[in-house]
Design a protein around this nucleic acid. Sequence first.
DNA 1: GATGAATGAGTATTCATTCAT
DNA 2: GATGAATGAATACTCATTCAT
Lengths: 221, 221, 221, 221
Amino acid sequence: MTGTDEHEPKWRRLPEERPQQILDAAIEVFGDHGLADARLEDIAKRAGVSKGTIYLYFPNKEALFKEMIRQTVIDQLEQTERDLVNDRGSATDQVRLFMRWWWALMRRPDYQRIHRLVVGELQRFPELVEFFWDEVIVRRQLLLDRLIQRGVDSGEFRPVDPTTAGRIVTSMFSAHSLWACTRFYEKQELTDEIVFDQVMDYFFHSLSPAAVLAVAAPGRS
Amino acid sequence: MTGTDEHEPKWRRLPEERPQQILDAAIEVFGDHGLADARLEDIAKRAGVSKGTIYLYFPNKEALFKEMIRQTVIDQLEQTERDLVNDRGSATDQVRLFMRWWWALMRRPDYQRIHRLVVGELQRFPELVEFFWDEVIVRRQLLLDRLIQRGVDSGEFRPVDPTTAGRIVTSMFSAHSLWACTRFYEKQELTDEIVFDQVMDYFFHSLSPAAVLAVAAPGRS
Amino acid sequence: MTGTDEHEPKWRRLPEERPQQILDAAIEVFGDHGLADARLEDIAKRAGVSKGTIYLYFPNKEALFKEMIRQTVIDQLEQTERDLVNDRGSATDQVRLFMRWWWALMRRPDYQRIHRLVVGELQRFPELVEFFWDEVIVRRQLLLDRLIQRGVDSGEFRPVDPTTAGRIVTSMFSAHSLWACTRFYEKQELTDEIVFDQVMDYFFHSLSPAAVLAVAAPGRS
Amino acid sequence: MTGTDEHEPKWRRLPEERPQQILDAAIEVFGDHGLADARLEDIAKRAGVSKGTIYLYFPNKEALFKEMIRQTVIDQLEQTERDLVNDRGSATDQVRLFMRWWWALMRRPDYQRIHRLVVGELQRFPELVEFFWDEVIVRRQLLLDRLIQRGVDSGEFRPVDPTTAGRIVTSMFSAHSLWACTRFYEKQELTDEIVFDQVMDYFFHSLSPAAVLAVAAPGRS
DNA sequence: GATGAATGAGTATTCATTCAT
DNA sequence: GATGAATGAATACTCATTCAT
């Protein structure tokens, strides 16, 4: 069929890469349109394959969506753990380093897309929520826990529950990440750098041992 | 209710209420399924009208969606400003009061749904984003600004930019609101009350004047 | 509701005129859009009544359509017969006069619309076709018959079957009438007057007694 | 036909033929119901394909309609020009031959349908009108022009403007063609053959050189 | 493996018709 | 009589999924 003499590109389309090509295309298309509005045909086109080919690797649209979330998230997590610096320096510096790394990740367009999808559509897939909880929330929390606990132990931070503190700082970055891709940032002349510094400033202030005495016990109003 | 022996409701046909009936149904259905996955027929059924009736009041699905967002958001805002207490008591108490009121709003199921939709789908409607910015973000910010500035002036808070501080506390509640409707809360045995206290605790600590000296200047790592 | 003292217009909307108002509106709307594409709401609006009112006078859309055709056609016919001059002058002049009158009728916008509808949609209503045949075709033919027969009798025209001759001249005007509302006429710089003269010229030439000998017997090819 | 024991057709899937299959079905269904009343599903069924398949080849209903008109008309024209006999014999014979060929075309059921649609609905599509003018009216006129001019030159016909004469004979056949599919023909016991002979008879009489002197100058009445 | 033509269930939208007021 | 809000059947069009090649 392909003729007598091979003079084809050495390695054209490697079949082993197919699934990843499709997943990459899926990130973009699902990210831009959401699950329901994304068209398989667009994903196929962007992946450079035909519509039918997708079905060789994924049983249906929903499975493709879930696999895309799962795989993207896992990728990012594994990178996180791999990249995480050896514990050295002050807890403050460690936390700042970790969060800086993480903020950089959150600001990547592909993360943005996934994040938005997770917020918007994940509720409908309880299994994915489960997976997300176990693989993302818990693992990330464990990393932060360790760093914050160290700061508490060393007296850098006031004595807090590390899990709660981790959730607090995560919440700030998470919301800012969702806001960042709107025009709101331009209007306020915010940059990623400014936002990062602001969030870390407030976070570290909230952990300051000196602040403990100054804050009155919350009187229920 | 239906009278003594009326086999049919005495007063059907309340055209003035139709649009609101439909919008209420739309909140639920759009909230559960998103824009693309919501079926007009479900909205009609839930509103107790026929499919065609929706088109007497809204030109199409997208317009219904946008009007629903717009109207819900405006409702909530007007309530906010109407309910906002006269400024009395310490700034700390005032902020706590305001945020408590607001957190209660955010936890309402209808707000949850709208919030999720705003995050998930608003990007596709620039006009709505614009509207949201002007009517929600800015107005809410102005309210917070005033309260925080008072705390700064009175020495209750360290000297901060009120707008930034407002954004910080908003970010924490916003993210927690999105997380709250997942099962994560159950797993961590969090309640609305606990979360509220935690967030306010961290926020007020971060504003503590005593904390200023204690936090080292951020050294770029 | 209407207040205490009557000072309403003396004779507002006379109920007896309702059907005609509706039929007039129907001519325009059906004429512009055809049966299927015409919307009852447009007809109602144009007639200055509500949609429901139409159903007080006509059982449904199709009946309205048929009645509109029927009534318009009858109107025109009765006018024709009423206006037809007493037979005086040469047959040529009589025919020319009759056709001139008729051509003027055909060029009226309302006739145009009806004509187009008759051609386009009448097939689907056999009863209307029947009616049309009896009331329009036959009656018109009878009028023409008389005039042409007189010309044959007087020797002005060659000896022809008047019915056939009537059909021939009718065909020419009918087609030209359909063509006249297109831009074709502009392109050829034709006016109603020119077309009328051309058609009559050819028709009278075809009836010229002198022409009889000149035309060879048709050799089947 | 289907082979000896094949329970399924051996060769389905002939994509090259799809568009034509659909267009053929469209002629019938549009022809019977008009543009607005035709249902795509009927066309699909008649073409032996599914509803969706139509959309693989035509972007929407209107485009299908226009393409059907365009293609049918073009087909007929090309055939006309291809079939047109080499000029030989008398002009009278040539015209008769041409018109006979053309009348046969006009009497075909598919032409009838198209003709009716053209009259009834074409006004709404100015582009199609334009196309029709250029491709049909003008081209047909050019063919007739040549033949009639020859007759004038040879003295067979009286000195007329060939374009006008062509329009006159066209008008007669056109109207008769529209009338022919009604029951009027039966009632008058007309056949295609009789009508053809009648029209040609009147047309040739109207062109007779001998008739010139006999027809009085039209006196405006 | 890969393709893309074909399918048809699913949905937004329209509009003739009804009927409570 | 008159209204116009309400209905829901009807229909164009989409797109995930299949399968012959």
